[in-house]
């Protein structure tokens, strides 16, 4: 039983970020503040499953966040808001068309490429994947929506459905 759980969580970590929908469908009318990327494909709902042992995978509605955020940099720190800056080419596909038009997001690097799912070394100063996810959420969701930061139940209210294993443990 334990092996099965370990295997499942390992798989969950491997495929921690898996876009479910939205491969071809642009955000359409939902995006108000942020214009949709010209050539890019923005995910609508993302399933985050790297902590599926305790909780069921989190369904993150990317589209609704796009409409609420004032810009990508609210959550994605790749545009130099005090974080490590990357070379443009690491994220943007730079080709002839990109130079003709303005450079649009062609590829946003998944958090897990830099933020490791395993516990990071303290000297790197870079948070692990779980912490990176949570900090991105806590920037706004703390104390107001879902009472995260005021009540430990806020985690469940906000995102986390207790997983099958957690439910099993609760039963006497």
């Amino acid at each position: 039983m334990k092996k099965v759980i370990i295997a499942i969580s390992a798989l969950a970590i491997l495929f921690g970020v898996s876009p479910v929908t939205g491969a071809g469908s642009g955000p359409g009318g939902t995006a108000k503040a942020v214009p949709p990327p010209a050539g890019g494909k923005m995910p609508q709902v993302i399933v985050l499953g790297s902590i599926a042992k305790t909780y069921d995978p989190v369904k993150f509605n990317h589209a609704s966040h796009v409409s609420n955020a004032s810009g990508c940099a609210d959550c994605h720190h790749q545009h130099g808001n005090g974080q490590q800056s990357l070379a443009c080419g690491e994220c943007h596909a730079i080709d002839a068309s990109a130079f003709k038009k303005s450079v649009r997001l062609a590829k946003m690097r998944p958090c897990g490429e830099c933020h490791s799912a395993s516990y990071p070394a303290a000297d790197s100063g870079r948070p692990g994947l779980k912490v990176a996810y949570h900090r991105a959420c806590f920037k706004c969701h703390r104390g107001d929506v879902g009472s995260v930061g005021q009540d430990p139940k806020g985690c469940v209210e906000m995102c986390h459905v207790p997983g099958a294993q957690a439910k099993l443990e609760k039963k006497p």
């Binding site: 070394a121 303290a122 692990g128 912490v131 949570h134």
Partner: peptide
């Protein structure tokens, strides 16, 4: 430290942690 979702608790070499805190 492993469980903390907010990264409020960090484990490591003490000297690294002092440097991290200073940063």
């Amino acid at each position: 430290a492993e469980a903390c979702p907010a990264g409020a608790v960090t484990f490591g070499k003490r000297s690294d942690l002092v440097a991290l805190a200073r940063n």
